[in-house]
Design a protein around this nucleic acid. Sequence first.
DNA 1: GGCACCTGCTAACTTCTATTTGCATGTGGG
DNA 2: CCCACATGCAAATAGAAGTTAGCAGGTGCC
Lengths: 118, 118
Amino acid sequence: MSGSSPTGDELVRLLGTLANPHRLRIVAALLAERAYVSELARELRISRALLQVHLRKLEAAGLVTASLEVSAEGKAMKFYEVTPFSIQLTPQAVAAAVPTLSTPDSVQGDGLDEGARS
Amino acid sequence: MSGSSPTGDELVRLLGTLANPHRLRIVAALLAERAYVSELARELRISRALLQVHLRKLEAAGLVTASLEVSAEGKAMKFYEVTPFSIQLTPQAVAAAVPTLSTPDSVQGDGLDEGARS
DNA sequence: GGCACCTGCTAACTTCTATTTGCATGTGGG
DNA sequence: CCCACATGCAAATAGAAGTTAGCAGGTGCC
């Protein structure tokens, strides 16, 4: 899904996920070096609970991946790393994604009719 | 601003603006053809008030531009059109934008009073 | 045992966003 | 004059998102 044209809903989720300062910092930090949760929380100076929420959202969007590892001391540590992605954001790309948006009402077909309302 | 690296705050605003189904549809519709507000509202089947809110947000992000024109009948009509933009979204681009993010406590603006924080 | 780490979760609160509703203004034309 | 169509905005509501606080479990070590 990296680079290829995402569906409208995926695009909305991707953009919504990245549209957050904390999550941008998380991505940047993980790009520099993979890290485990507590470590990352200290580095970014945010609470662990908050970081976990953001990490979960990033993971749900497929922007980061988690791997649970056990250190030599037997401590369980969850390491995160960024998933390489590349999205070209242009009006054309947006227009291409729009037809695949799930609509509240089933508006299938090309826009050709004229709605008559009060 | 098309293509060049946006600042962290700009990036957050841009992504946040595009992360919305209605606004994506608006961009797509305006890419196909520029339109005025009421016309566009009918085409997208949303209320004018709602459309105006979204258009204002798109305009604030610099994604669309407005031009007030007067038709031959003397009716004032506000035409919107998309601004060409191209943003490459990659982990590297994110990392490059992060350093320019305004910190949680540094509120940008014209000299606001700095209250005591707990 | 108690302390220092690691992890996870939920409930509650606050803040932001999206959407609706209603009103106000101006034009042209039957 | 009144209707149709264009514009604009503010207040109020519903809903989503962000954030904190608190509790739970596990391991290693002095």
